[in-house]
């Protein structure tokens, strides 16, 4: 997948604001491309979940305390059995390694902290840039 801080070669780039209709429209568009590229039901479920989590993280956590009109950048490229997507916010970033493990018994009843683990569980590859404000994900049909 390469360096998470670099653009995905040949990808389309979209500026997305925190508007549900626009988010749905973009995800539906990416999923349609994914269907055309041969991704099936379980893969589509996985990709949808991971994109939702990454976009939510970008707006809710990445842009916390910032102008609510700030857009995030979504880059995506879909080819035969291979979907790559990067989501970059304009916030200061975070340290994904510092996130507590939500599956530990003492964390099970905490109502937060599962987004990144779901992204990692459902996508083939997930990597953050060093600043922690950009995530690059890939789903490869095996």
């Amino acid at each position: 997948m390469g360096d998470p801080s670099t653009s995905i070669p040949g990808s389309e780039s979209v500026q997305l604001v925190n508007d549900r209709d626009q988010i749905n429209e973009l995800i539906d568009r990416i999923l349609k491309l994914a269907v055309d590229a041969g991704l099936k039901d379980a893969a589509l479920f996985a990709v949808r979940l991971a994109i939702e989590e990454a976009i939510t993280n970008a707006f809710v956590h990445g842009h916390e305390g910032l102008d609510t009109n700030l857009p995030v950048t979504v880059e995506f490229k879909v080819s035969d059995g291979d979907l790559q997507i990067a989501i970059e916010d304009q916030g200061p970033g975070f340290t994904p390694e510092a996130l507590p493990d939500p599956t530990l018994t003492e964390n099970l009843s905490k109502p937060f902290g599962r987004g990144v683990m779901l992204m990692k569980a459902y996508m083939t590859e997930v990597a953050f840039n060093s600043q922690g404000n950009r995530v690059k994900m890939r789903y490869l049909v095996s």
Partner: peptide, 16 residues
């Protein structure tokens, strides 16, 4: 058909 981690969080809050 679909839910997010935020929905899981809401269910946990309801359970608590």
């Amino acid at each position: 058909d679909h839910l997010s981690s935020a929905a899981l969080g809401a269910l946990i809050t309801i359970n608590n």
